[in-house]
Design a protein around this nucleic acid. Structure first.
Length: 181
DNA sequence: CGCGTTTGACCGGCGC
DNA sequence: GCGCCGGTCAAACGCG
């Protein structure tokens, strides 16, 4: 199935790499959504795994990624009447890519970027620009292995994908997304 | 011009 | 209570 010479729909992101050596392996480990049961493929990890390990061998400091470790937890807030912020489950997966921006068919608007402790690369915060859709995602590159990009999705899209171009590759990618649901 | 990015300030939660 | 830290806001800027 992944024998197609499909490349990623990274058309506009010129990230210092004109010729991508990316192979089907990379595609195989991408776009797996929600099915993080035990698929420890070469590049897929659960959320709790995140990157909490490569860091902090010194024990102290920087293990505040509890927010990221909230995988399928439904946020059983022992708190209160007011649910202003409904923390929805997050889905994180790693991707072997040389570009940070993975085009998944949706249109995202970046709204923040913060430096990550124990990581030389910053983390970018994106939000779906569709009206009424507050799906968020954050993209982060591991400093441990800079060829790995961790993408964390939060929320579910309730609107059709708006694809900026109708390449055959894009359609195939979308099919991959859906089939993995 | 409209839309997206950049970037420092701001905010709320949690640990000490 | 204070300070750190992760996340978000928003004004200014850039680009097509």
């Amino acid at each position: 199935m992944e024998k197609y010479p499909i490349l990623f729909p990274v058309q506009q992101s010129s990230s210092s790499s004109t010729s991508f050596p990316q192979t089907s392996e990379m595609l195989g480990s991408t776009h797996v959504f929600g099915s993080l049961h035990g698929g420890n493929s070469s590049g897929l990890l659960g959320l709790k795994d995140f990157e909490g390990r490569g860091m902090s061998p010194q024990g102290d400091g920087a293990h505040h990624m509890k927010s990221l470790a909230s995988s399928m937890e439904n946020e059983t807030r022992p708190d209160k009447k007011k649910e202003k912020k409904v923390r929805r489950p997050r889905y994180a997966f790693q991707t072997r890519s040389q570009v940070d921006i993975l085009d998944d068919g949706y249109r995202w608007r970046k709204y923040g970027q913060k430096a990550v402790k124990n990581n030389k690369f910053p983390r970018s915060y994106y939000r779906c620009t569709h009206q009424g859709c507050n799906v968020k995602k954050q993209v982060q590159r591991l400093s441990r292995d800079e060829s790995i990009v961790v993408t964390t999705y939060e929320g579910m899209h309730s609107h059709p994908i708006e694809k900026p171009n109708d390449n055959f590759e894009d359609i195939l990618n979308q099919m991959q997304i859906y089939s993995n649901f």
